[in-house]
């Protein structure tokens, strides 16, 4: 039923798009009809697949590093109060700096290759994961902690067996947000400076007024982002028991 609904919405969107271009007579270099985008997709399928793979790798590695570092940072802040006192204000202040403004600097530091895009995706993912995981760790039910203490559990046992499992639903929320924003990080990184990826194709096609190709790349990116989000969401729903 869910798939049918998604399929119906997609068909309705394509029909509305086609009718809009037909009825308004809008220039194709401003908004190409869906059939033109489809043709561009087929004609450039090999190139698009290669660039899509690059962007996909950047997004996935960004997700892995961002999530890993975010979770680790939250754990360190939970365990060491002195670190928390110093790190928490730094983290909050760091969010005042727009991450996109850092993209050109990252390209200068890390080069035009994948590293700067992965760093960009990592940076954009890091904060939501850290904040939600830390919140989850801190807000473990007092009753659970009392019970564990009455059972003579050590601090490390409480962290491993009580606080971390308690924090998983919050961590999952952070990971969902991270999955939704990870493609933004990778694409912005590609826009600033790259020779590969869907962001590079979009910029390149835009400069040459190949708007159908630009839309084809955008379509692939949208499908990739939505598929990734729903896959992660389904996995999290299966693995993590909501409290």
């Amino acid at each position: 039923m869910k798939l049918f609904r998604i399929f119906t919405i997609a068909i309705a969107f394509l029909v509305a798009w086609h009718l809009f271009t037909l009825l308004t007579g809008i220039e194709f270099f401003i908004l190409p009809p869906p059939a033109h985008v489809g043709t561009a997709l087929i004609n450039h399928s090999y190139d698009l697949a290669g660039h899509a793979l690059t962007t996909f790798i950047e997004i996935m590695l960004g997700l892995i590093f961002g999530t890993g570092l975010g979770a680790l940072c939250a754990l360190v802040m939970m365990v060491f109060q002195s670190v928390r006192l110093w790190l928490l204000p730094v983290l909050v202040i760091s969010q005042a700096v727009p991450v996109f403004a850092l993209a050109p600097i990252l390209v200068i530091w890390l080069g035009y290759g994948m590293a700067s895009k992965i760093a960009m995706a990592t940076l954009i993912i890091f904060f939501p994961v850290t904040a939600t995981m830390f919140d989850g760790l801190r807000q473990t039910k007092q009753g659970f902690l009392d019970l564990a203490n009455s059972m003579n559990a050590s601090r490390s046992a409480i962290l491993i067996h009580v606080r971390i499992p308690s924090a998983l639903p919050s961590f999952a929320s952070g990971l969902r947000v991270a999955t939704a924003v990870a493609p933004i990080g990778a694409i912005v990184g590609e826009w600033v400076g790259s020779s590969e990826g869907l962001g590079f194709i979009m910029l390149h096609a835009n400069a040459r007024l190949q708007i159908d190709l630009m839309f084809a790349a955008l379509l692939i990116l949208a499908i990739m982002a939505v598929t990734l989000y729903f896959t992660i969401d389904q996995l999290l729903q299966k693995v993590i028991i909501q409290h």
């Binding site: 039910k141 009753g143 659970f144 009392d146 019970l147 564990a148 009455s150 059972m151 003579n152 559990a153 050590s154 046992a157 409480i158 067996h161 009580v162 499992p165 998983l168 028991i241 909501q242 409290h243």
Partner: peptide, 28 residues
């Protein structure tokens, strides 16, 4: 001492048997 609270305090991520054996698990 063993402590039994107003609410059951069962860990939702553990099954019934694992909840019963929680103390040993926490103490390793």
């Amino acid at each position: 001492l063993a402590y039994m609270s107003q609410v059951d305090l069962l860990f939702p991520w553990l099954n019934v048997l694992d909840n019963v054996t929680l103390g040993a698990r926490l103490r390793g």
